[in-house]
């Protein structure tokens, strides 16, 4: 029962912008950058694809624009530049059924932290009079929740979906400051096969200790086993990994916590960070 509840929360948390009818199939979400390292004198564009898909990194479902029926969403993505400020250019993410695509202009030199602009999502789970498990988006006061509902539990879900791109060298990436995210000492755009990377997992900007992460290489479509590597953060939130193969990787983690916030029973943080590993 508890497992079921958790599983429901998990699926719900990860797919809140997906079609309600299809959320059962989708859980991972991710960004795919066209480049992670760029050189040259002129300003560059990098293409960012976003999708909700278990097949890493094959697109499955796009995020629906907030405005119903819109062909694009200018508020889907954020890019924080080397100066620590969000870029002022509009990032227009087109809705393409299975993915969203946006061109992000990199005018400055250094590292850009690119992420989905996710707001926390409130979900309430309950059992109806027939004992069926139900979920609604919204607080306990939502009108869809029947008066005789049992086991009513409200979760706030906050997911981080991000990646990093550097132009003409790297700089210290800006932090999102909210939710889960990874920080140095290893630079996220300086990853090579055979080398050990050391990162610190942060939650709301503070070290997140004793959290298990899954490090999953992309192209899961072309192999039978997912072969994810599991690592756990130490007391200061640090974890290390030595890359075995070049390619794009998805770093996943989630943290569930009881909440003292009024009307919220638990908070669920999720992390989906895309990293690019070069061959030696």
């Amino acid at each position: 029962m508890k497992i079921n509840l958790l599983k429901s929360a998990f699926i719900g948390a990860l797919t809140f912008t997906a079609l309600a009818s299809s959320y059962a199939n989708a859980h991972a979400q991710w960004l795919v950058p066209s480049h992670t390292s760029l050189s040259g004198d002129k300003a560059h564009y990098v293409m960012i694809d976003a999708s909700i898909s278990n097949e890493i990194f094959a697109a499955d479902k796009a995020y629906r624009p907030k405005e119903k029926g819109a062909e694009y969403d200018d508020n889907l993505l954020i890019a924080i530049g080397p100066d620590g400020k969000p870029i002022s250019d509009k990032i227009r993410a087109y809705y393409l059924q299975r993915k969203n695509s946006a061109a992000v202009k990199l005018a400055d030199e250094g590292t850009y932290h690119i992420a989905m602009k996710h707001e926390p999502r409130i979900m309430t789970f309950y059992k109806n009079a027939e004992g069926e498990r139900k979920r609604v988006f919204g607080p306990k006061t939502s009108k869809d929740i029947p008066a005789d509902a049992k086991d009513v539990r409200t979760t706030k879900a906050f997911s981080t979906v991000d990646t990093f791109v550097s132009r003409n060298g790297t700089s210290k990436p800006a932090l999102l400051g909210k939710g889960l995210e990874i920080s140095g000492p290893t630079h996220p755009n300086d990853l090579f096969v055979g080398e050990e990377a050391r990162f610190q997992l942060l939650k709301d900007g503070k070290p997140a200790a004793n959290v298990e992460l899954a490090i999953l290489k992309g192209d899961t479509r072309y192999r039978n086993e997912r072969n994810e590597v599991k690592v756990t953060t130490d007391k200061q939130g640090f974890f290390t990994n030595t890359w075995q193969h070049p390619g794009l990787y998805l770093i996943e983690a989630s943290v569930n916590e009881d909440s003292s916030e009024k009307g919220i029973d638990s908070v669920r943080y999720s992390l989906f960070t895309t990293l690019d590993v070069a061959p030696e």
Partner: peptide, 19 residues
């Protein structure tokens, strides 16, 4: 030839490409 492709010298670029 062109700075646009310096990044393809991946190991050199990461060590010396910044400046």
């Amino acid at each position: 030839q062109e700075a646009e492709w310096f990044k393809d010298l991946r190991q050199w670029w990461r060590k010396a490409g910044k400046s």
